[in-house]
Design a protein around this nucleic acid. Sequence first.
DNA 1: CTTTCAAAGTTAGCGCCTCTAACATATGTT
DNA 2: AACATATGTTAGAGGCGCTAACTTTGAAAG
Lengths: 203, 203
Amino acid sequence: MLPGTLVSEKTGYHHGDLRAHLVAAVRELVEEKGFDGFSIAEACRRAGVSSAAPYKHFKDKQEILVAVAVDGLFRLGDRMEAEAAKVADDGLARVTAMGRAYVGFARDEPGVFRLTFGQVDTEDKREMMRAVGCDTFGILQRAVADCLATTQDDPVCQFRSYMLWSFVHGHASLSMDGKAEISEAPLEEDRLLAEISRRVLLG
Amino acid sequence: MLPGTLVSEKTGYHHGDLRAHLVAAVRELVEEKGFDGFSIAEACRRAGVSSAAPYKHFKDKQEILVAVAVDGLFRLGDRMEAEAAKVADDGLARVTAMGRAYVGFARDEPGVFRLTFGQVDTEDKREMMRAVGCDTFGILQRAVADCLATTQDDPVCQFRSYMLWSFVHGHASLSMDGKAEISEAPLEEDRLLAEISRRVLLG
DNA sequence: CTTTCAAAGTTAGCGCCTCTAACATATGTT
DNA sequence: AACATATGTTAGAGGCGCTAACTTTGAAAG
């Protein structure tokens, strides 16, 4: 079965697709209770299995969280591409749209966002997150290369892509839980994102 | 006694200054094990008291973490001011120096940094963090106002201060655990920070 | 100097959590 | 049909957060 298709109901003893259901349950719980403060046990109750079941699919709690984080990273990438596809064929506008998608994701799923960009303990999982993160960052890099009329491996493109990423990631993190309101400036988000893109890409 | 002076040894039954010792122990543990994955119980062992002792000083675990976060925010502010004081009387250079201090703090104390800018559950504690965060952000705002030859309450100053904060916060977060290396560009940090200040303040 | 009392420790223990071991049941291959 | 494997189960060890009830201590009040 394709991963991520939550179709099968529990067929008596076996669950059907516990792995995906668990990831979904944990995702919900991470949003509801924060990514500390939730428990695997509760996700099990929600998925209708015993609290030992997850360990047939995951080594430990950390591995489940990584699965949720990877899933989140993919959805973030999809959202960026979708938002960029909506706007006209203008490089700058597309980059701005990606920023909007990024911030929107952080605001819609703060728990997953924090998980995705939080720490990972073990080395192999860090490597996995790095690989998937690389793909997602590549989406932005392509748009920037397009905008600057250069290639993705151009150091200038990479430098500016990273600047954009920093900017948007920072704003997303700060605005997520109201820290942006420390600055009393009335923050029109669209203006901010457009300004950011302009200053980085055309400066 | 001044807060933060960890002098008194345990005098038989009473500890002397358990509150400060606990905060220090938790700070260490948050660095060692991450801010999930550590336990109050372990901090107690390290401070040489029973696992029930903390609850004479703090309502719950969350309140201890807030204390560590607030402490971290103060130290971040101090570090920013110290780094800025080192450089010549040039507004732009000072802002850059503050960025360097911010990123340095994140790299030296990633656990505390994540804690400080992570979520807080209860409303009153969120309010406390907001107040202290406001003070710290004010340090940057003053430097920016100086640089733009305007006042702190000027909307332009606030807008640009926030842009700087986003930028630096984003870079700090991403570089902390190697996510910056996703971009393969050789990142000379000083150049990056200088570029950021320039683009935001002079753009 | 004694008495008293609040502050700040202690032990005991409940309920919940993570994770393991041993056992049970379904599925699919030969 | 028989077996192997994957994926469930229950039982339970060990750890943690937090509370209740008790104890020690230092210091203020008489």
